[in-house]
Design a protein around this nucleic acid. Structure first.
Length: 468
RNA sequence: GCCCCCAUCGUCUAGUGGCCUAGGACACCACCCUUUCAAGGUGGCGGCACGGGUUCGAAUCCCGUUGGGGGUGCCA
């Protein structure tokens, strides 16, 4: 009778949701889904000043965006670490009574002074055999046993730590409050956690946690330390230097599916020749044992490429819905000018041209502006050709009477182009800048058809006037 | 300083002793397509950090070197 695996996910309260945290959450979730296990969310709030209801809600929102649904039967929590404070202290006292911990009255300054004297770093076990009783200002320290501690890690195999390199660490502070390490282990035991999957940076702390598990009379969980995510300098992704907030990518128009898929390919790859796979394949194939051992660079460019793929996979209706939030307030056209029907017609042309959704407004703004946007570089590049004025003159008269259909409009320009022995690629340029204000954009004749005769004509006339 | 982890194209990876003349993806370049830009198609550039072993045979196993990273609190 083997119990269902329980995977814990415990983000640290930083105020935002780190993409690295998102990845370990995804690992835990994939495993829980495949094994029929449980995803346990714990809010590490022993320091309540860094925690808030908003933060907790933010976590749940971010998880749900990633597809980790808090209403699923496989989702448990959130648990709040602060609610277990009594158990933390109880466990510490038990350790003391068992002889696995002892009290020490040295101040941090005194510990440091002794360390300097002996030349050995850290605490030297000064109070190990002094038999001190609890008292104000006294800390409780764990009595690290002789020998070695072997951490069995699913990603890295067995990692051995010599116990004499681990100091007698503090369990209870001088003010009686429990340290995070202790709290963590007690909570894991309390919540019957069977698997701890987290970032590699926690590996050096693991032997301490494992010793605590054993001292408290339990077998440690299955550990798995996955490599950290790094920036181009190969340093751990940090809030200060790097764009690490999941919310930020979401706000810029990265699709959840793309983010999930990309995150999963950092340190792991699905079988086959494509990395673009649905979540169901991830659930089927993901194994901790297959996760890479070395840090992975979080490449925003590749993320955008994945996102482009996912954007193109969207149905027209899905694309419209995904784009909608980016077309409201803050868009580069006057409030009230947005026309849903116009965008709907233009949408298919936009869908293949976008990496992140936030690029959409700048691509379609000319539809909703009262006149063509002014871009001097674009103007100078295209309106200086010797045929620019003639193109505009020809199109002004053609546009006035042509049947309003992009094929006919194109034909009108082609007539001019052929008569002059030019290329359509050249002659469309002045027209494009006159109408859209830019040298690049969605297909021109289709855009003109959508824009309408009056608006187009007005813009061509304006451009002619400016040309003089 | 001490402890721990890591090392395949620029990047993310496949590879678990012979299928490797090392495969794919992103990026980059070229060509095709083409009304601009994309998308799509085809092709190209480009890598097993180094040195020793083990073996008939090593990207794969062992040792060392070098180089990266992480951890070293009465923080979480």
């Amino acid at each position: 009778m083997s119990a269902v695996p329980r995977y814990r996910f415990a983000p640290s309260p930083t105020g935002f949701f780190h993409v690295g945290g998102a990845r370990t959450a995804l690992y835990n979730w994939a495993l829980a889904q495949r094994t029929g296990g449980t995803f346990v969310l714990r809010i590490e709030d022993t320091d309540e000043s860094r925690n808030s209801p908003e933060w907790t809600q933010g976590i749940i929102d971010a998880l749900s965006w990633l597809g980790i649904d808090s209403s699923s039967p496989q989702f448990e929590g959130p648990y709040f670490q602060s609610e277990y404070a009594a158990q933390h202290v109880d466990a510490a006292m038990r350790l003391w009574r068992q002889g696995d911990a002892y009290w020490c009255d040295l101040t941090p300054e005194q510990v440091q002074a002794r360390s300097k004297e002996t030349g050995r770093p850290g605490y030297d076990g000064y109070s190990r055999d002094r038999g001190l009783e609890p008292g104000p200002g006294r800390v409780l320290r764990f009595r690290v046993p002789e020998g070695a501690t072997v951490v069995g890690d699913l990603v890295r195999g067995n990692v051995e730590f010599a116990n004499d390199t681990i100091e007698d660490f503090v369990l209870l502070r001088g003010n009686g409050t429990p340290m995070f390490l202790l709290a963590n282990v007690v909570d894991d035991i309390e919540m019957r956690i069977s698997h701890v999957v987290r970032a590699e940076e926690h590996l050096p702390n693991t032997p301490k946690q494992q010793m605590l598990w054993r001292a408290l009379g339990h077998e440690p969980p299955v550990w798995a330390h996955v490599p950290v995510l790094v920036n181009e300098q190969r340093k751990k992704l940090s809030k200060r230097r790097d764009k690490v907030a999941l919310e930020q990518y979401r706000a810029e128009g990265i699709l959840a599916d793309a983010m999930v898929n990309y995150l999963m390919t950092l340190g792991w790859a699905p079988a086959g020749d494509t990395e673009i796979v649905p979540w169901s394949r991830v659930v089927e194939e993901f194994r901790l044992e297959d996760v890479n051992h070395s840090p992975a660079f979080f490449d925003v460019k590749k993320l955008a490429a994945f996102n482009g793929d996912y954007v193109r996979m969207l149905t027209p209706g899905e694309f419209l819905a995904a784009a909608r939030p980016f077309l409201g307030p803050g868009a580069p056209w006057p409030a009230g000018n947005f026309d849903e029907a116009v965008f709907e017609r233009a949408a298919p042309m936009v869908q293949t041209r976008v990496g992140t959704l936030s690029e959409i407004p700048a691509m379609v703004d000319f539809f909703f502006l009262d006149s063509a946007p002014v871009d001097d570089d674009a103007w100078n590049k295209t309106m200086t050709s010797d045929f620019a004025a003639d193109v505009l003159a020809h199109m002004e008269s053609a546009l006035a009477s042509v049947e309003w259909d992009h094929e006919r409009i194109k034909r009108a320009l082609e007539e001019f182009t052929e008569a002059r022995g030019l290329k359509l690629g050249k002659t469309q340029a002045p027209l494009r800048v006159a109408v859209t204000g830019r040298t690049v954009g969605p297909p021109l004749f289709e855009s003109i058809e959508i824009l309408g005769r009056d608006a187009t004509l007005a813009r061509v006339r304006t451009a002619r006037a400016r040309l003089g």
